[in-house]
Amino acid sequence: MIPCIESGIPGFDELTRSNDGTGGIPENTATLIYGPAKTGKSIFTNQFTYKGLTNDEPCLYITTDNGYKQFKNTMEEFNWPIEEYIDNNSLYLIDTISDISKGKPSQSESFIQSYINNPTDIMVKIGSGVHYIYKNNPRFRSVIDSATTLLAYNENMLIIRVLKAYLMRVNEAGGTPIIVYTQDTADSIIETMSKSMVDNIIRVDGEKLYIEAMKGIERRSSPYQITDNGIVIK
């Protein structure tokens, strides 16, 4: 039996239900969610993050697309308030983008600044982040949103190595990581490499969500909608 954690996406855990009755995201495995731009990938991972937080599963969140403020606002739009989790340090946020815009928030124990064009620094912060979270709860979630931006700012093969190291670290500590990637933004070698590194692959195209690969189950798909409460799978 493959133990799963709740995705938080209505319909997803049913869609991924296996013969032995479990459904959701297989615990302690790595997932890639990809698809064209604006198809709900970030919403999916935010929903996944929020579900974890409300279940006492902390989250190591690496944001490369939206600074802290924007991230918080986006979450609130869907009625997923995260302030409390930032305060109690169960959301460990590595913000690699805010320094570019103005109004840099100050660092705290679980709010860490890094730099999108410095993967080495990001890896160091991830290392201490994993350590920090693991200490409190070995059952945790982790999100990188998104690999696309990391790839855009850095040498691609270096990012592949960094992502590999990230997955190894989170995995070793017992966490469940998800990486977001926008389809066709890197060359096909990099895209294939990224897919080969993870256990599960989810693709969204605006209309349907495809489980292209998942530990313990065969390929599946279902239409989905983006509602005021996030993604809902029919």
């Binding site: 993967p119 080495t120 990001i122 190595r161 960094v162």
Partner: peptide, 9 residues
């Protein structure tokens, strides 16, 4: 080696 692997030199 380190910079190539994404770890601090």
């Amino acid at each position: 080696s380190s910079n190539f692997m994404g770890v601090p030199p």
